[in-house]
């Protein structure tokens, strides 16, 4: 697991998401009002850009077809028949006003390849 410095806290407005790229890995990072969440940026349904969705509590609603995905677990919450589908989620923390994200080494290797 490697912690990476992403961006200043103020660059991600409260209850919004922004896309950040590490090699071929594209993350959507969300500001839930102090706490941050990071998931893979594309919806498992039709690759909708999750960072452009509406935040609903701890969930994100995909802007294309309203799939609801938990930002804590990455699992799809709606539609219910896809509850086993998920996007990868990554731990976040804030250090000295900078959002940090932890990415496993194997994911980083894949992204760099």
């Amino acid at each position: 697991m490697k912690w990476l410095r992403v961006t200043q806290v103020e660059n991600i407005p409260v209850r919004q998401g922004r896309v950040v790229r590490f090699g071929s890995l594209e993350l959507a990072i969300f500001n839930l009002g102090g706490a941050f969440r990071a998931v893979e940026s594309r919806c498992p349904h039709k690759q909708g850009p999750l960072a452009d969705g509406i935040v609903a509590g701890d969930d994100i609603i995909c802007p294309l077809h309203n799939w609801r995905i938990s930002l804590d677990s990455g699992f799809v919450k709606q539609p219910k028949e896809h509850a086993e589908t998920c996007v990868k989620s990554f731990p976040c923390r804030v250090e000295q006003g900078v959002v940090m994200v932890a990415i496993p080494e194997d994911v980083l290797r894949e992204a760099a390849a």
């Binding site: 490697k2 990476l4 410095r5 992403v6 961006t7 950040v20 790229r21 590490f22 090699g23 900078v98 990415i103 080494e105 980083l108 290797r109 992204a111 760099a112 390849a113």
Partner: peptide, 11 residues
Amino acid sequence: PLEQPMPQEAT
């Protein structure tokens, strides 16, 4: 991002 993983680290 403020920081990109170094290529050698990533690989």
